[in-house]
Design a protein around this nucleic acid. Sequence first.
DNA 1: TTCTATATGTAAGATTCTAACACACTTTCA
DNA 2: TGAAAGTGTGTTAGAATCTTACATATAGAA
Lengths: 252, 252
Amino acid sequence: MKRDRVEEIAELLDKRGKLTLEQLDDYFPHVSQMTLRRDLFQLEQEGRIIRVRGGAMSVKEVQKVSGEPYTKKTTIHTDEKIKIAQKAARLVDENTSLFIDGGTTAMYLAKELPDINVHIFTNGLAVAIELAQKKNVHLTVLGGQVMKDNLSTASPVAKSYFDNTNFELAIISASAFTPENGFSCASQIEADLLKMTRRKAKSMYMMLDSSKIGKIMPYTFARLEDIDVLITDDNFPADLKEKFTSRNIVVM
Amino acid sequence: MKRDRVEEIAELLDKRGKLTLEQLDDYFPHVSQMTLRRDLFQLEQEGRIIRVRGGAMSVKEVQKVSGEPYTKKTTIHTDEKIKIAQKAARLVDENTSLFIDGGTTAMYLAKELPDINVHIFTNGLAVAIELAQKKNVHLTVLGGQVMKDNLSTASPVAKSYFDNTNFELAIISASAFTPENGFSCASQIEADLLKMTRRKAKSMYMMLDSSKIGKIMPYTFARLEDIDVLITDDNFPADLKEKFTSRNIVVM
DNA sequence: TTCTATATGTAAGATTCTAACACACTTTCA
DNA sequence: TGAAAGTGTGTTAGAATCTTACATATAGAA
């Protein structure tokens, strides 16, 4: 009862890294803020979290190598991205192999993914470190030059990995989308990599939070009709949705 | 001036673990509380401290409360490893390219390395994330299957990277050493990778803390005479040192 | 010098936290 | 069985802390 809630809070914090009391209140609407405070206090005593002004953060989060976590711009549109990641995580079946990209949405996907027996390829360093904590996940990182802004790799040599490996599914995210210009991103070699992915994977799921709609980045790597499933949030425009569904693309 | 104070605060926090704003005020009576708040805010942005209600605490302090597979390992013989890493960092010249492995000692090397213009290849994910924070460092990660215990990668495909790249220097570390069995490590493919490195690099520096002497791991990747410089700590046995120096290997 | 950017100080107002008490429910044990 | 003690929770007022906004000072650049 109480213990369940406390554990749930601890888990949530491990996943999200940091939570405000307000966010916790949304998760547990049936108990008062004071109770949640007391729960946090208890977890702090147990050394599992650190209480900060406004809420608390996971100790594990801090222990992680200081690259991605709470320092970077992971705070932008966090809630939408997490919801999208949760939807995507439910679509991953056991005993399959899939590709995940290195973006921030993918990072949340890595966190939400259950610890099941799958083989995952990724070009994201932070994503890889997150996934490495799951015992049952087989993990391969695509090497290459590191892009420091988003901690992902890309290189022409990555092709040799693809030649020797197979995966059914690719779950990726784009930095921008318009119906005319399709899905685009900021870097040439990243776009090349994603194009390669599209050719290799049997099906392709796209994670796209609605804030990216209407934006255009320099390099298009997929067109509207190239994907099989679009995973987005509630703010996705209805008229745009129609464009996908009319092409038998599932929007969720 | 300001930077000095900020650094001093960071040092204090590393030493004391946690400080309240009131305590900080005692240390710095000539500036206002607001200024100290702003300093803490800045340090938080840099990812070096965590602000908590009432003051702040050092990230390092939090990291001591370990428990994770990777983080656990980093706490053993930390001091020696840091000293070794500092020595190694001084040996890296600007405008060169080098290989660094993915071990914990290499991790410290990554931290100690100045932000100079070099091209670094590594098979360590944690090492890569650390290095990615340095603006002037060009960084390439070797991809492959991820070994979850030490967050490094290795794969036969890594060979294709080596075919297309050059580096003068390799700075690596071993898990074990005896004069008879040479430098050894725990995994086959890691050993293969390091052997490849040895062939590719013009010179090879080995970081070895004295706790690893006398131990034997399954896979030998280099013999005593294969290296050019041995970087170790003060506890390195004198008779063993003789064996290296007599072969013109620098021990430092 | 004069201008601009950075660093600092002050204080009001907002936010978050704690303390204290009240109530419901469970367990203990005479 | 029924008090008594223990645990979990809710509510509030007031305390502690933090942020914002503006004023001032200082350093560096033009």
